[in-house]
Structure formats: structure tokens, C-alpha cells
Nucleic acid binder design. Structure first.
Length: 301
DNA sequence: CGCCAGGTGCTGA
DNA sequence: TCAGCACATGGC
């Protein structure tokens, strides 16, 4: 068992904010099962420490620190973002949320699956890909499977991917897997490339547009300028834009000016904030009380 | 039971 | 550059 010092960190907010799709929560113990650096793990947070169980002798505390980005100065980043009332509230609510350093290939494949989709189904699709084409790993009463490599997925017939429910994303994933497997897009080297070059490289993949490229750059390649613009972020942007249409180009321009170099952190806090605000207001919609104050004008009839 | 979901690719102005 | 459309599927 590894014990990792994790100050200014929330395992829950980090794993449940929608940036990763494969962690499984067990209510009885408060532990999460998942994978870090290819090792099946069980993680619990105990105050300012992480208890990480694994049977993989190669997993180190450094791997865990790296995956959860515990080496970044979160306090300094959040201070630099805290520029208005909305982001201030999001930070207050989800303090400790950190942008993960996920495996770039799994991240890329996952967000290709995310297009025009919902999180529950994305999780199911990724789980089925793993069960069918990954390596099974039993651990401590938990049975999971590693996410399949690009080399493996490149050989899977498109029809098989459709059978797992990937829909129109099946050919996208297969073609991108082939591109990666053939070594035509070395993902690992993109960690050391700047944001603009990284993004244009990712855009060469089939099924990867502006938004997915930003997700991979942010969650898998440490590009903290990346600011993925999806439906929820467009809603959050109404707080700043009022009448102007929040197109991705305008949103990017605004985000870099308003939030600075770590705009990607602001993006994830805002994303989680507006999504959970929607869920709260829906769950009590029938009680017919006034709209929650401070919420962006997302709820229209 | 329609609506919606962490969009992308293609087409035509 | 940019609006308009088709695209598969299942949770809610």
C-alpha cells in the first residue's frame, strides 16, 4: 500500500467532474477503483493523504502524484483564476479539483467517443471496449480490464465497434487508432510540444475537432491553456457574454484574457459547476420554489 | 416517449 | 469563415 501526501486535493471532485470516465466508486468504503499508469488500483482519501492499494509492484508514489497532478501549486493557480463572482463560487465549491494527467491514448479514444453523447453512455462504451479488447485484471475482489492499445483497436473490424454501441464514432475511432498504431502521431512527444502545435497535430485525427482536441490537450497532455468549449461551457459563458454568441473562437479569446495561462483549470471548475447546478435545480423543479440565485440564465422554458 | 447528450465532417454560400 | 445538416444510441 502506498501512502501519498495530497494537500489541497479532493479525490471526489477530481474523479467525478467528468474529465475521466473509468473510475468506479464504492459507497461502502468511499474507495475508487481504476487504473494509474497501467496498474489496477484502489484509492481512498484520508484527510490530506491518499491510500493507494495495488498488486502491481511497479507502481510508485511518484506515478500517483503525477497522475493526480499533486506537484502543481493549486493555490497559486486558483488565485490567478479568481477574477469574477461565478468562477469564485465554482472554486469555493470544488476546491481541490485537479486536472488529471491521463494516458494520452486512452484520453484521445475516450473523447472521440464523447462526441454528441452523454457521460453515462460514454462510460459504458469505454467499459465495453476494455472488457472486449483490453487485458483483464482481477484485484481485491474487483475485476476490471485495461484500456486496449491503439495497435489492438486498429485491427478490430468497424462492425465489432458498432456492436459495442459506438455508432457513427466507430470508423473515427478505428481510423485514429490506425494513425496512432502506425506511429504517424507520436502522442507522448506532444507532452513536450507547445499548445498550438499539439492541437494542430491532434486535429489530424479522424473524429477530433476543436473541442475534443482541447480535451486531450488538457486532460492528457498538460496543456493548461486548452479551454474545451462544449454545450455546458457555452452556458457558463452567457454569464460573461450576455448577448454575443459564445462561439469557440470568441470563448477562447475571452478565456485567455480573463483567466490567463491556466484557463483550462477554470474551464473544468466551470464545467462541473454549471452541470451540478442544473442537476440540483432539476431535482427540486417540482417543489416550485424560485430559481436558484447566482445561477447563469441556463434554465429557460 | 420525445428530448438530450463533454461534436465532427461535409456542403454550399 | 460560417450556418445548416446528418449522424447512432440509450438514459432519463
Amino acid at each position: 500500500m502506498l501512502s501519498v501526501h495530497a494537500p489541497d486535493f479532493s479525490l471526489r471532485h477530481t474523479l467525478e467532474c467528468g474529465q475521466a470516465f473509468r473510475w468506479k466508486f464504492t459507497p461502502a468504503t468511499g474507495a475508487y477503483y481504476g487504473f494509474i499508469a497501467g496498474a489496477a488500483v484502489r484509492v481512498r482519501q484520508q484527510h490530506d493523504h491518499l491510500a493507494v492499494e495495488t498488486i502491481d509492484p511497479n507502481l510508485t508514489a511518484g506515478d500517483v502524484r503525477r497522475y493526480f497532478a499533486l506537484d502543481v501549486d493549486l493555490g497559486a493557480i486558483l488565485s490567478s483564476l479568481d477574477a469574477d463572482a461565478q468562477i469564485h463560487e465554482a472554486i469555493a465549491k470544488f476546491r481541490g479539483l485537479r486536472v488529471l494527467r491521463q494516458d494520452p491514448w486512452e484520453c484521445l479514444a475516450s473523447f472521440i467517443c464523447s462526441a454528441f453523447n452523454n457521460i453515462a453512455r460514454i462510460e459504458g462504451m469505454i467499459e465495453r471496449l476494455s472488457v472486449h479488447f483490453g487485458v483483464p485484471l482481477a484485484f481485491n475482489g474487483f475485476r476490471g480490464s485495461s484500456f486496449p492499445s491503439a495497435e489492438v483497436l486498429a485491427r478490430v473490424p468497424e462492425r465489432r465497434l458498432r456492436e459495442l454501441g459506438l455508432g457513427f464514432r466507430a470508423p473515427y475511432l478505428k481510423r485514429t487508432a490506425r494513425l496512432i498504431a502506425e506511429g504517424k502521431l507520436p502522442l507522448e512527444t506532444l507532452r513536450r510540444t507547445d499548445y498550438v502545435v499539439t492541437k494542430s497535430a491532434l486535429l489530424r485525427c479522424d473524429g477530433v475537432g476543436d473541442k475534443v482536441a482541447d480535451c486531450v490537450a488538457l486532460f492528457g497532455l498538460e496543456k493548461y491553456e486548452a479551454f474545451p468549449v462544449d454545450l455546458w461551457i457555452e452556458r457558463a459563458m452567457r454569464y460573461y457574454f450576455r448577448d454575443a454568441k459564445p462561439t469557440p473562437a470568441r470563448v477562447h479569446d475571452f478565456a485567455w484574457k480573463h483567466f490567463g495561462r491556466y484557463a483550462g483549470y477554470a474551464q473544468q471548475y466551470l464545467y462541473h459547476y454549471v452541470r451540478t447546478a442544473r442537476e440540483r435545480s432539476e431535482s427540486r423543479a417540482q417543489s416550485r420554489d424560485a430559481a436558484s440565485p447566482g445561477e447563469p440564465s441556463a434554465a429557460n422554458a
